[in-house]
Amino acid sequence: MNDLSFFLIDDDEIFQFIMRNTISEISPNIKIQFFSDGEKGIEFLKHNLGTATNLPDIILLDVNMPFMDGWEFLNEYKSLQTEIKKDINIYLLTSSNNPNDIAMAKEISTLSGYLVKPISKEGIKKLIGHFPTDEWYHNDF
């Protein structure tokens, strides 16, 4: 667990700050990389398709972002998936508790679960302790 590599794709700087802070508290070995929107995330993946060391174990993907939102990112990711040399678990971060959105999320095979925002510091700690999961994950809210 301590060697896990995270990508956080979210435009919320404060959430990024809190994540960084929280993760460094848990373990200095956990790597986390930030992207402020989906487009930046997918660009990075495209450039590092073959380099497994640069690829994360887990992507926390915000839905609501400028330029490219979470859903679009998932679409793009799907077309790249076969070329990606690593098993990546993607968890959707959503502020929506709309049942339709949740149902839509469950339809997407590349997703491993979703997390309903906001997530408190304790929530983050708890999450990181569980990752990665074999079954569909969703936090309590």
């Binding site: 919320d12 404060i14 809190i18 609501n64 502020s95 929506s96 925002k117 906001p118 408190s120």
Partner: peptide, 18 residues
């Protein structure tokens, strides 16, 4: 209100606990 206000308020509580 739900999306745009919840995020900063949660962030505030996270920052306050930090």
């Amino acid at each position: 209100v739900a999306h745009n206000l919840r995020a900063p308020t949660t962030s505030v509580s996270a920052l306050v606990s930090m």
